[in-house]
Simulated assay, not measured.
Amino acid sequence: MKRIYLKHAALALAAIPLAMKISAQDLKKFPAGAGPAEVGKRIAARFIATPHTNFGKPTPPRVITYAETCTWYGALNFAAVTGDKTLTAQLAQRFEPLFGSRDTLIPKPDHVDYTVFGSVPLELYRQTKEQRYLDLGKRIADKQWGPPEGPRVTAESHRFYGKGLTWQTRLWIDDMFMITCVQAQAYRATGDRSYIDKAAKEMVFYLDSLQRPNGLFYHAPDVPFYWGRGNGWMAAGMSELLRSLPKDNPDRPRIMDGYKKMMASLLQFQNEKGMWRQLVDDPASWEETSGSGMFTFAFITGVKEGWLDKQVYGPAARKGWLALTGYINADNDITDVCEGTNKKNDRQYYLDRKRLTGDQHGQAPLLWCATALLR
C-alpha cells in the first residue's frame, strides 16, 4: 500500500503544471511558448522578414528609424547570446545595401534619434570584426561629441557643448537610451573609456534635471506626465549604461542611486497582471507593451547583475515577461504598442494615442528582455 501511495503521489506531482513548480523569482525556467530562446528567435525572424519600417506609415522611411535601430540592435544581441551565427549573418546581410546603393538610408548623426543608429554597425563589428563596421560606428558616435554643426544647431546646442555635454542634448527622457546606447557600444567595441565616461556624465545631468522625487520622469520639463515609454527609455538606458560602466567611474554611484530609485517606484506601479500603463501613475490609462517591455528589461538586468534584490524584483521581472508574451499574436507581432509620440502638455493626448500592432517600438524590448534573460 505504501508503494502504491508513493507512486500515485509521484504521478500527482508530475501533473502539477510547470509554472506551479517554478519559484516565483525564477528567471531561467518558463512555461512552453514563453521561453526567452524560443520567443527571441521568433521575434528576430519576424524582424528579418520585415522591410524597413516608417512609424506605422505605409510608405518606406527616408532613413532608418530609431525604432528599427533598436530592434536591429536587440536582434544582434540575441544572436550573440545564443551563438546563432546564421542570425548574425542575416542581420549583416540586411546591412549590406547600406554600404552600397542604399547608403542614403543611413541617418545623418545630427540628432539623438539618428545617432543611435551607430549602435548597429558597432555591434556588427563586435561580432564579425569587419573594420568597415567599426569605422562607420565610430564616425557616428564621435559626431555626437564633436562641435555643433548643421541646420539643427541652436543657441542651446552651443551652451550644452560648452558644458562638456553633447550638443545634441535636449532634455527629453528618450535621449537617455539614444545617447547611452551608442556611446556604450563605442566603448564596448573600442575599449576607449572616453565614450562611456561622457555618456555617464550626460546621464547624471539628465538625472539631476529631470528625475522627480518619486523616482519617475516627466516626459520633458514642460510636460508633467509620466509617459510609459518615455520612462521606459530612461529605465533601459540606465540599465545599458550601468551594465558596462567601469566600477571606478565617479558618476556610477549617482547613476545607480537614480536607477534604484526609479526601480522602487516602478515596482509599486506594476499591476497584478505584470504590466504598466500608458501613463505610469494613471489607473485610467491603458496597459501598454513597449514601456512594459523596457521596465521588464530593467528589472531583469538589475536582478541578473545583482543590483536588485532577487526575492523582491525577481517575481516582478518574471511576471512582466510572462505578461508580455501574452500580447504576441500569431504573426509574432506584439500588440498594444503606443504609436510614435511627441511631447504635449495634455493628459488626453497620451490617453488617445493609437495602439499599434507589430510596431518596432514594441518588438525591440521583447528582444532586449529575451537576451537579458539568457545573458
Rank of each mutant, 00 (worst) to 15 (best):
87 L>N: 00
96 E>D: 14
94 R>I: 03
84 D>H: 04
95 F>S: 11
103 D>G: 12
83 G>S: 15
82 T>G: 03
92 A>N: 05
81 V>P: 00
86 T>N: 15
94 R>Y: 01
91 L>V: 03
97 P>C: 08
90 Q>Y: 08
88 T>D: 02
84 D>V: 11
104 T>V: 13
108 K>N: 13
81 V>N: 03
89 A>S: 10
98 L>C: 03
79 A>I: 00
104 T>H: 15
107 P>D: 00
103 D>M: 10
109 P>G: 10
109 P>K: 08
81 V>G: 04
92 A>Q: 14
95 F>W: 06
89 A>E: 08
88 T>V: 04
107 P>G: 09
98 L>V: 03
103 D>Q: 13
88 T>W: 06
101 S>N: 15
107 P>F: 07
104 T>G: 15
100 G>Y: 05
102 R>E: 14
109 P>D: 04
106 I>M: 02
79 A>K: 00
97 P>G: 04
103 D>L: 13
105 L>H: 02
105 L>Q: 09
79 A>R: 14
103 D>S: 14
106 I>W: 05
104 T>C: 06
103 D>R: 13
96 E>W: 08
92 A>K: 10
82 T>M: 10
86 T>D: 13
98 L>G: 11
82 T>L: 09
95 F>T: 08
87 L>V: 11
101 S>C: 12
99 F>I: 05
107 P>N: 10
83 G>T: 06
93 Q>Y: 03
79 A>L: 13
87 L>A: 02
86 T>L: 12
106 I>G: 02
92 A>G: 11
81 V>L: 02
102 R>L: 01
84 D>L: 13
85 K>Y: 10
90 Q>K: 15
109 P>A: 08
87 L>K: 01
90 Q>G: 09
84 D>W: 07
105 L>W: 06
105 L>N: 09
100 G>P: 04
103 D>K: 15
100 G>D: 05
105 L>S: 10
100 G>R: 06
104 T>S: 08
100 G>K: 00
102 R>P: 00
97 P>A: 07
104 T>Q: 11
106 I>Y: 06
96 E>K: 15
96 E>F: 03
99 F>M: 09
96 E>P: 02
84 D>A: 13
103 D>F: 09
97 P>T: 06
102 R>F: 07
106 I>F: 10
89 A>R: 10
105 L>I: 15
85 K>S: 14
109 P>L: 03
91 L>Q: 01
104 T>A: 15
92 A>P: 03
94 R>H: 07
82 T>F: 07
83 G>Q: 09
84 D>P: 11
99 F>Y: 13
95 F>R: 01
82 T>A: 09
93 Q>E: 07
102 R>D: 09
85 K>G: 12
103 D>N: 14
102 R>Q: 15
90 Q>N: 14
81 V>A: 12
100 G>C: 02
108 K>C: 10
82 T>C: 07
107 P>W: 00
91 L>T: 08
80 A>R: 05
93 Q>M: 09
90 Q>F: 12
96 E>S: 05
103 D>E: 13
97 P>W: 08
